[in-house]
Amino acid sequence: MKKKRLLLLILAGVFTLTLAPLHSIAAQSGEGLTPIQQLGKYIFFDTTLSKPVGQSCATCHDPGSAFADPEGGAVSQGALQSRVGERNSPSVSYAAFSPQMYFDPKTSPAIPDGQYKGGLFWDGRADTLEEQALQPFVNPLEMHNSDLKQVFLAVRQSDYANLFRQVFGQNSFEDLDYASACIGQAIAAYERSAEVNPFTSKFDYWKKGQATLTDTELRGYMLFTNTTMMGAKCANCHSVSANETVAPSLFTNFGHQNLGVPGNPELPFYFLQKPLNPAGTNYIDRGLGDFLRSIGVPEELAAKEDGRFKIPSLRNCAITAPYEHNGVFTTLREVVMFNNTRDVPGAGWPAPEVAENVHRHPSMDRTFGKLGLTDQQVDDIVAFLGTLTDGYQP
């Protein structure tokens, strides 16, 4: 499996392949969830699927927090109270739109060597929601099952087991591998539903002519989308659609980038004992680079991706603090100010966690890290980002 994926990733611009789905997923109706989506929702919220019991997918991906961690800590606590993850839990909302990881050879002054795009998790290591959904169950820092058989047995004994059989067949529990794949597919079906991806922000209603932005929100939008020397150029990486009715804006180009984000000295993962964190306080998260090493990409190629992480969607970002892969920033204003002044002498930002491959334009002013935005312009951008929160009532 690793050799197959390695070959496909090295071939620039070629997507990895997926098998046909185990069960056709009916289109989302306006009246609610389809049976497979409802099944996936039951599994997503089931707190008996961790060891010890008490943690569900929704524990770290709560709908009340746009399917991100409601606790707001730098990282999420695992089913075992003494364990934590090494990265900030990203929102599940809109993850369904991410393509499988591929290498885009297109170059630009900002991306001279091309760029990996797509995948799920901060390092892009899962190609599909089906694959991603199963990994937390057996992660020792998360839901802590020793294998998927424990999850399979709990689902088979659940109150929704009959619905599982209705969706996947009366004999669906007779084969562990098949049932496990079905569990992943059901969760993925729910994560593709309109309940998880509603597109109900003020921005969405504004684009449909059903809401009005305030002056500061509109100024922020203009700065956000302005990619000239006088703009904030946010849309270069957090893309805005040219036609919302055809393809709603997802506010990401799905790329991977090293922004020079500093390490988070308060990251509790640093203090986990061996073998959970052999490096202790010397731990460095190399992101995409280490994932590529894990699947056999040669060191000279993997090293070029050290420190790069998935560019997240900004939808709901106003309610999904903290920010960046390690949760080092606690407010949106702090994030925008970092983007604005990272390379300004005297700005006082700590050194990057991974100094190699930092995204910079050394010979150009008014670029990332030295955008030249005023305090008012920073506030305007933050105000616009607030319009991306779902649940707006026009």
Rank of each mutant, 00 (worst) to 15 (best):
D104E: 11
D104G: 11
P105Q: 13
P105M: 10
K106S: 15
K106R: 15
T107C: 11
S108G: 10
S108N: 04
A110F: 12
A110V: 14
I111G: 06
I111T: 13
I111C: 04
I111E: 15
P112H: 07
D113H: 11
G114D: 13
Y116M: 14
Y116D: 12
K117E: 10
G118R: 11
G118I: 09
G119S: 11
L120T: 02
L120P: 10
F121Y: 05
W122R: 01
W122Q: 08
D123C: 08
D123H: 04
D123F: 05
G124R: 06
R125D: 01
R125F: 04
A126Y: 14
T128G: 10
T128K: 02
L129P: 07
L129C: 02
L129T: 02
E130I: 00
Q132N: 05
Q132W: 00
A133R: 01
A133E: 00
A133D: 00
A133T: 00
L134I: 06
L134Q: 06
L134K: 06
L134Y: 03
P136S: 07
P136Y: 06
V138H: 10
V138R: 12
N139T: 07
N139V: 03
N139I: 05
P140G: 02
L141H: 13
L141T: 15
E142W: 03
E142L: 08
E142R: 08
M143L: 15
M143S: 00
H144I: 06
N145A: 05
N145D: 11
N145P: 12
S146C: 01
S146E: 10
S146L: 10
D147H: 05
L148K: 05
K149M: 00
K149S: 03
K149P: 00
V151N: 09
V151F: 08
F152V: 00
